[in-house]
Structure formats: structure tokens, C-alpha cells
């Protein structure tokens, strides 16, 4: 890599300033405020607050609703990651086969990524609404009792699909790049060694994609944990009941609807710790270059 040397520290600091400012204003400051908030107990009008140490955390961790949301998050994020990555890998393999079509494919598959979460959710809403949605009505006519506003399982399925759909394009780009970086001659050698396409996929392509897959797994989990508020909010609002209330959604419910700022802050600090842990794991493994 090329290194540029600067004389003194003024110029480098100046060049870094915008990035540092953004990080401070939109990340460090709110994060600090959340941590500070999480050790306080405040009345709903914000008139009085007292220091309570880790009590907010202790209360959150034993709360059944929080545990329910944690379980939802586990189901939700695992499903989103598996669905989004599986679909993306399948599409990438198809695109890789016919490089001729790859450009069209790529353009089509990148679109979802550019759609705002709420807009995407409205799209899915119009598809799956039980009475006006295209697919929702078809499901009902087919005899399936489809109403995600009443059925928690159906609601979860819907938000999983909607959230995964948005992530497919991102995964696709990485998988396609990963596939194209595998030398063609390696696959040809495997073919000559007697491996049929399916076997080639599982013994050569899949292992060689493992660094990409691992990277994407972490990215997808982080996405499902933190970046899906908009989708859930617009589609189900965490309902029916609390069937689609994930941890990030619960932070919102607790802080904005119930105005329980101390608890909400404690929950967001917990999420922050999770994302830091995930990122740390990722860096550890990426440095070790997973598998080869």
C-alpha cells in the first residue's frame, strides 16, 4: 500500500476534521448520552433524575418482555441472515454462470438496496395486505388464512421477508465479486478431476467463498439487529401483540412511547455492546483470513 507522509499534524487533522466531526456529533455524543442516561432514573417529564447505577440494566435483563424481544430478535436476525444470504448466493451463482447477463442482473438486483426502509415496507404492505394486497388476497383465496395483523407467525414471516429482501442486493454484490475472484482454471481442474457441478460447488466454490460468507454473516446480523426498525415500524409496528417486537424496536417503544428513558437507554447500551462484540469477532476472523 502506498503511504503518504505529511509534515506536521495540522494538515492531516484538517483533512480528518469532517469525518471526526460527523463521528462525534452523530455517534460519540449520542452514545455517551445513552450511557449517561442508562444509569439515571428520570421521571416522565424530565424534571428530576437520580443516579441509580446499574439498576436499569438489572431490571431490563429480568423483564419478560425484554427476553421475549431478545428471542424475537434471535429468530428474526438469524432468519433474515440465512434468507438474504441464501437468496443472494443463489442469484450470484446464476449471474456468474452467464456473465453476459450479469450486468442486467446486477442492476436489477442492486435496486432494492437503494429503496428506503419505509418505502420498501409500503411496497410489501401493498403486496401482502390481507384485503388489498396482491399476494395477500391470493393466499386468502387459496384457503390459507392470511392476516399478518392477527397472526403473529405470519407477521414475523412478513417482516423477515421484507427485511431480507432489502439486504439481498448487498450480499449479491459481494458474493458475485467472491465468485469472480475464483480462478476459472481451478474449477476446470476440479471438473477434470471428476467433480460434477453440485460437488464442485460444495467442495471448491463454497469453501473459497467462506471469508466472504463470514463477513456477510456479521454484516447481515448487524443489519437485522439495528437497521430494520423502519421495516418493522411501517409493516407491523411490533405487533400483533409483541410478536414482531425486536430489541431495537423495544428501545423505541420504551423510550418514545412509554417515556421510560432510563430503561430505554440501558437497552440501547446493551445493543451497543452486542454490535461492538460482533465487530470485534469479525475483525479477529478476517485478520486470520478464515479457512485459507
Amino acid at each position: 500500500m502506498k503511504k503518504t507522509l505529511f509534515k506536521g499534524t495540522a494538515l492531516p487533522l484538517l483533512l480528518l476534521a469532517p469525518q471526526l466531526a460527523v463521528t462525534c456529533v452523530f455517534f460519540l455524543w449520542p452514545a455517551g448520552a445513552a450511557i449517561w442516561q442508562s444509569v439515571l432514573q428520570e421521571d416522565p417529564w424530565g424534571t428530576r433524575s437520580e443516579f441509580v447505577g446499574l439498576r436499569n440494566f438489572a431490571e431490563v435483563l429480568v423483564e419478560p418482555e425484554w427476553r421475549g424481544a431478545a428471542l424475537n430478535t434471535l429468530v428474526f436476525s438469524t432468519s433474515v441472515a440465512v434468507l438474504a444470504m441464501g437468496t443472494a448466493l443463489f442469484l450470484a451463482v446464476q449471474a456468474d454462470k452467464s456473465i453476459r447477463g450479469a450486468n442486467l442482473y446486477k442492476t436489477l438486483l442492486i435496486w432494492p438496496y437503494a429503496v428506503a426502509p419505509a418505502v420498501a415496507a409500503v411496497l410489501w404492505l401493498f403486496l401482502f395486505h390481507p384485503s388489498i394486497g396482491l399476494i395477500g388476497r391470493a393466499l386468502n383465496q387459496a384457503g390459507l388464512d392470511w392476516d399478518y395483523k392477527l397472526n403473529g407467525g405470519q407477521a414475523m414471516t412478513l417482516v423477515i421477508i421484507a427485511a431480507a429482501w432489502k439486504q439481498v442486493s448487498y450480499n449479491f454484490i459481494f458474493f458475485l465479486a467472491g465468485l469472480q475472484s475464483i480462478p476459472k482454471s481451478v474449477l476446470e481442474a476440479a471438473a477434470i478431476d471428476g467433480a460434477r457441478p453440485v460437488r464442485r460447488f460444495w467442495t471448491i466454490i463454497f469453501p473459497l467463498l467462506s471469508p466472504t460468507s463470514f463477513f456477510l454473516l456479521v454484516v447481515n446480523l448487524v443489519y437485522a439487529f439495528f437497521d430494520t426498525f423502519g421495516v418493522i415500524h411501517a409493516l407491523t409496528g411490533g405487533g400483533p401483540g409483541k410478536a414482531t417486537e425486536t430489541l431495537i424496536y423495544k428501545v423505541y417503544v420504551e423510550g418514545v412511547q412509554n417515556v421510560n428513558l432510563g430503561s430505554s437507554a440501558a437497552q440501547s447500551v446493551i445493543l451497543m455492546v452486542i454490535v461492538i462484540a460482533l465487530t470485534a469477532v469479525q475483525f479477529r476472523f478476517i485478520e486470520r483470513k478464515v479457512h485459507y
Partner: peptide, 20 residues
């Protein structure tokens, strides 16, 4: 026939070893 059914072996210019 597919390469797999021809009972041949090939040595490539870039060796094409399985890196993993």
C-alpha cells in the same frame, strides 16, 4: 462427454491448485 467422463488429467499454466 463431460471432462469428468474422459479419464484425463491436465496440468495448467497457473497450476490451478485448490487453494483451500
Amino acid at each position: 462427454l463431460e471432462p469428468a467422463d474422459r479419464d484425463i488429467a491436465m496440468v495448467f499454466q497457473n497450476y490451478a491448485l485448490y487453494p483451500h
